[in-house]
């Protein structure tokens, strides 16, 4: 029997750049699991994959864009969202998904996250939160919970963790959800829903990093993390985001927290511009900032 006969075609394969597999991710890492849910969500939708682009920053999760068989953009550290903003503005037909990690999106890129949510830029942002800087070898992140150990916090971190859904909600995102790498079916459904929605959509996914976060904090391997997520998770759809803080060892509140309607940036721009948009240019006046031409 040859190996080809054994091969059963998995529809997800079409969405992956097969010539890039295997991935760089460690055994037990949750990123691949999230990608599986994402691929299924994409396939289950009536979405033109030719018009779908994926943008990442830097880090382990930043490699997701490069494994997807879409228009893939692997940008600089923290700047996936502004790149994606440019892509969307210059071609509004595109479905633009940002897929990156917690450090990339919320720390070095935190400002962009806030402002894209505030603008309600029509982007879907997936944040894989492994609570640590993994690509660089296990340093503390803004999301490292409590006093957890990392290579840069050998005595434990001295600062509290960021509650990402709360800030994204406060900044104005129209959709905010959180799942863990254990909740593959729920995640797929939420992603499918978010893909269809317009505006700034944000999904946080807790994901184990057995190589750094779990090991540094004696939390076992990837499987142990799944058991832990199962045990500690509590589904609370519509939960106020100020209650979604991730306390070490405490409850992990998951679910779809925010789902509201808000005019997205481009829609609002077109509405406000009205006849000032795409019209044959009228006569230009070279006015000065002062002088009679303005005040008269």
């Amino acid at each position: 029997m040859s190996t080809t006969e054994l091969h059963v075609h998995n529809p997800v394969e079409d969405l992956l750049r097969q010539d890039r597999i295997p991935t760089i991710w460690c055994p037990g890492c949750g990123i691949g699991t999230t990608v599986n849910s994402f691929a299924h969500a994409l396939l289950g939708q009536d979405i033109d994959l030719k018009k779908t682009a994926i943008v990442s920053g830097i880090g382990c999760s930043g490699r997701v864009s490069g494994y997807m068989n879409l228009d893939s953009f692997h940008t600089t550290h923290g700047r996936a969202i502004p790149f994606a903003t440019g892509l969307k503005l210059a071609n509004p037909e595109l479905n633009v998904i940002v897929y990156s990690g917690d450090g990339d999106l919320t720390s070095i890129g935190g400002n962009h996250l806030l402002h894209a949510a505030r603008r309600n830029m029509d982007l879907m942002v997936v944040c894989v939160n492994n609570m640590i800087y993994a690509m660089t070898g296990g340093q503390a992140a803004a999301t490292t919970p409590g006093a957890a150990n990392s290579t840069t916090t050998p005595y434990g971190a001295f600062e509290p963790e960021l509650n990402i859904p709360q800030i994204v909600d406060a900044a104005g995102a129209c959709f905010v959800a959180r799942w863990t790498a254990f909740h593959v079916m729920q995640l797929e459904r939420t992603m499918a829903k978010a893909l269809k929605k317009k505006g700034f959509r944000f999904i946080e996914i807790l994901s184990p990093c057995p190589t750094y976060f779990q090991r540094k904090n004696n939390m076992g391997d990837g499987l142990a993390a799944m058991v832990d997520y199962k045990k500690r998770s509590k589904i609370k759809n519509g939960c106020p985001t100020w209650e979604t803080v991730l306390e070490p060892g405490g409850e992990i509140i998951v679910g779809e927290f925010v789902d509201r309607e808000r005019e997205d940036y481009l829609t609002r721009m077109r509405r406000q511009l009205g006849s000032n948009y795409t019209e044959f240019p009228p006569q230009m006046e070279e006015h000065e900032s002062e002088g009679c031409s303005k005040e008269c």
Binding site: I81, G86, L87, N111, H112, H115
Partner: peptide, 16 residues
């Protein structure tokens, strides 16, 4: 929001 964002947003525009 800043020049970091501006200088990469334009590159998204170009690739669009």
């Amino acid at each position: 929001e800043d020049e970091l964002a501006s200088s990469i947003a334009i590159q998204g525009m170009v690739w669009a």
